[in-house]
């Protein structure tokens, strides 16, 4: 995938850049409105990560510009403002998703993939990971062609891990992904263990290899390596 990161906070931009390029994506960076404007005019991207508060201009103007020149790049807004109005405005202007800071890189990557999937395959996407087949629209998964029944949360969790395959996902990130910000469950870190155990069991029971690896008790990795 070809991605553009428009973010003024340098260290955050570097982290995102590092995380995304490690997966074989091509990443471009812009630290302000002007750079963003130029890169958007010159190149096409699969997805643009757009910070709304830039030192020399509003990020929403870049979004408007992008739509004006009829580019079909996917846009993921990353903002520190958890304001419903801004969210609605951003989405109505044609952004594909809205992520509020602070976020986990794994979450960011899963969302980017979801956007790109929707854009490229019209949302009708079935993808594979070895013997696992995942249909994101029907919310179904199959192992060796046989359906495995997962709850919605379990499906979300699996999809999240598959999207971030070969990456370590912290328990904190997994909790936020499944339960969002609403639940005040910051102290229930160990709880994700049970949840993953359930998914693991369902997969291995249906003849799937165990791809989950526990990493030092901090998180998990989904990998076939």
């Amino acid at each position: 995938m070809k991605l553009l990161i428009i973010e003024d906070e340098e260290s955050l931009r570097r982290s995102i850049h590092q995380y995304l390029t490690a997966e074989g994506n091509i990443c471009d960076s812009a630290s302000n409105y002007e750079q963003g404007y130029q890169k958007l005019s010159l190149y096409d991207y699969d997805c643009v990560l757009l910070d709304l508060t830039l030192p020399d201009g509003e990020g929403l103007l870049l979004l408007k510009y992008l739509k004006k020149i009829n580019k079909t790049d996917g846009v993921l807004i990353i903002s520190a403002r958890n304001s419903l109005d801004q969210k609605i405005e951003g989405l109505s202007l044609g952004a594909d998703d809205y992520l509020i800071k602070p976020f986990h890189l794994s979450e960011l990557y899963a969302r980017i993939q979801s956007i790109v999937r929707r854009r490229h395959f019209n949302g009708n996407s079935i993808f594979h990971f070895n013997e696992i087949e995942i249909d994101t629209t029907a919310m179904e998964m199959k192992v060796h062609g046989k359906p495995v029944y997962l709850t919605k949360k379990e499906f979300d969790l699996l999809l999240y891990f598959v999207a971030n395959k070969n990456k370590v996902i912290s328990k904190a990130a997994a909790i936020v992904h499944i339960w969002g910000d609403d639940a005040d469950m910051a102290d229930s870190f160990d709880f994700i263990y049970t949840h993953i155990k359930n998914v693991r069991k369902k997969l291995t029971d249906s003849g799937c290899k165990d791809y989950f690896q526990s990493v030092y008790g901090i998180g998990y990795k989904f990998t076939d390596k």
Binding site: E9, L12, Q18, P102, H104, L105, K167, S170, I218
Partner: peptide, 26 residues
Amino acid sequence: MTPLAVINSKLDTMLQSNTLGKEESE
């Protein structure tokens, strides 16, 4: 929120390192 996002992203980056010992993990 932005500094928190930086901390979060750095932690996520660190987590990907394959050289973490038990102590660092804790």
